[in-house]
Amino acid sequence: MSTKVKYGLLALLLIITVTGTNYFFNWSMMVLVTFVLAYLGKGLRVRKNRGNE
């Protein structure tokens, strides 16, 4: 995926988030918290190499 497409999708996500937060605050915060928890939880599920395994 090119850099232009990545930044375009990021800008679109930002616009949708700002619009959603203004009109549907409860739903937007619920989705935001869900994604943050999923992101933080991913770090807990990743197996780390200990070097001797």
Rank of each mutant, 00 (worst) to 15 (best):
L37V: 02
N49D: 15
K48I: 01
M1P: 03
N49E: 14
S28K: 00
V5K: 10
N22C: 12
V5Y: 06
L12G: 14
Y23M: 04
L14T: 06
K42H: 11
L9I: 07
L44F: 15
K6Y: 05
M30D: 15
T19Q: 09
W27G: 03
T19N: 13
L37Y: 02
G43N: 04
T21M: 07
E53G: 14
R50W: 07
Y39D: 04
S2Y: 08
L44D: 05
L32H: 09
R45L: 12
I16C: 12
R45S: 12
L40T: 02
T21L: 14
L13S: 15
T19G: 15
V18R: 01
N52E: 13
L40R: 05
F25Q: 04
Y7E: 15
F35D: 02
G43H: 03
L14N: 05
T19A: 15
L32K: 07
K4E: 10
T3L: 07
K48G: 01
L37K: 06
M1I: 08
K48R: 07
M1H: 12
F24H: 12
N26Y: 06
L40H: 01
Y7P: 02
I15F: 09
R45G: 08
M30V: 09
L32V: 10
K42P: 01
V33W: 13
T19M: 13
Y23I: 02
A11S: 13
T34S: 12
K42G: 10
G8N: 03
F25R: 02
N52Y: 07
M29N: 13
N26M: 12
E53V: 06
T3E: 10
T17F: 11
G41I: 00
S2A: 06
L40V: 05
R45A: 11
A38M: 06
L32F: 02
N52R: 09
K42R: 13
R47Y: 03
V18C: 01
G20K: 00
T3A: 08
G8P: 01
N22M: 10
F25V: 04
K4M: 07
S28Y: 00
K48H: 03
L44N: 03
N49K: 13
G41L: 01
I15T: 11
Y7A: 12
A11E: 13
M30L: 12
Y23H: 12
G8V: 02
L40M: 10
V33D: 11
L14A: 14
K6C: 09
R47F: 04
Y23F: 09
L9Y: 05
K6I: 06
V36W: 05
V18K: 00
R50G: 13
Y23E: 14
I16L: 08
F35P: 00
L37Q: 01
F24G: 04
S2M: 08
V36D: 05
M30N: 15
G43Q: 03
G43P: 00
R45P: 02
R50P: 11
Y23P: 00
I16E: 15
K4N: 12
S28G: 02
S2N: 13
V46H: 04
K48F: 03
T34Y: 05
S28E: 01
R50A: 10
M30R: 14
Y7W: 11
Y7F: 09
S28W: 00
N22T: 09
L37T: 02
V46M: 04
M1Y: 14
M30P: 07
G43W: 01
M1C: 08
L10I: 15
V36M: 05
E53I: 06
L10Y: 07
L44E: 04
F24E: 10
L10R: 13
R45T: 05
